[in-house]
């Protein structure tokens, strides 16, 4: 469909290779019938070629160097940075000594919640027949039921763009509260779980990671909601899935 496009648009887009084959044909026909316009088209596209050709091409090594420089902290003002890093190091040591070594990654209330998510995932992931109580086909019912039990509206996030689809969900205890577990599966049969609970404390904590027993847990708190994503996938896709979920909160 090209009716909407003016000749001027066709000319510009022709130079920038933005035309469909049909539009290209239309432009060619027009230019054949209008020699003056053809001359103008030639001259405009020659301009672009000239500009393009006169910009230097950096070597791959040079770009790799720039990237490496960017990945490493700047040297400028390094003294305050060194002092700061020493201070952070000292605080780190102090913290490290003050916290019990066991389950370092799962500390605090949120950590306990994440631990429960990990345990729930480990328990239900291998269930072939009954990984969930309510299947995804009854999504509405699932969401209503879990929202009622949690005391706050919850919707199972949609992870289609990451390749995961909802299998279903179940109700689980989380401390003295109820929590909702959603389980997802991708085409390879990888399963991931999301545990969500509505806590009394209204605060936010950014993503934390903990890897144990072959599963990676990513947990965070957003206002009163606590979330914990568990799965046996590498950090890269898990990280992205967690961000997708986090993005759907907004």
């Amino acid at each position: 469909m090209t009716e909407g496009k003016s000749i001027e648009d066709l000319i510009q887009q022709g130079i920038d290779n933005e035309l469909t084959p049909e539009e290209r044909q239309e432009l060619d026909d027009y230019l054949k019938a209008h020699p003056e316009e053809a001359k103008r088209y030639q001259s405009l596209s020659h301009q672009s070629d000239l500009i393009k050709a006169s910009v230097p091409v950096p070597s791959p090594e040079h770009l790799a160097q720039l990237k490496a420089n960017a990945a490493r902290p700047r040297r400028i003002n390094s003294m305050p940075r060194i002092a700061a890093s020493l201070a952070i190091f000292a605080v780190g040591i102090a913290l490290g000594l003050s916290i019990p070594r066991k389950d370092k990654g799962f500390n605090g209330d949120l950590g306990i919640f994440a631990q429960q998510a990990h345990a729930a995932h480990a328990l239900y992931v291998s269930e072939v027949l009954h990984p969930v109580e309510v299947v995804a086909a009854e999504r509405d019912h699932l969401q209503t039921w879990l929202s009622n039990r949690l005391g706050a509206a919850i919707i199972a996030p949609k992870l289609g763009q990451t390749g995961f689809s909802l299998i279903g969900g179940r109700l689980l205890p989380a401390g003295d509260k109820a929590s909702a577990l959603f389980m997802y599966e991708n085409a390879q049969g990888d399963r991931i779980s999301l545990l969500a609970t509505h806590s009394a404390k209204d605060q936010s904590q950014s993503f934390r990671f903990h890897e144990t027993g072959g599963y990676l847990t990513i947990f965070w708190q957003d206002g009163p909601w606590r979330y914990s994503l568990v799965g046996g996938l590498p950090r890269e896709p898990m990280d992205e899935i967690a961000r997708t979920i986090h993005g759907q909160l907004l």
Partner: peptide, 11 residues
């Protein structure tokens, strides 16, 4: 009260 936002999913 916060809730999960709705989003478009692939069928």
């Amino acid at each position: 009260m916060q809730q999960w936002g709705k989003s478009i999913d692939l069928p």
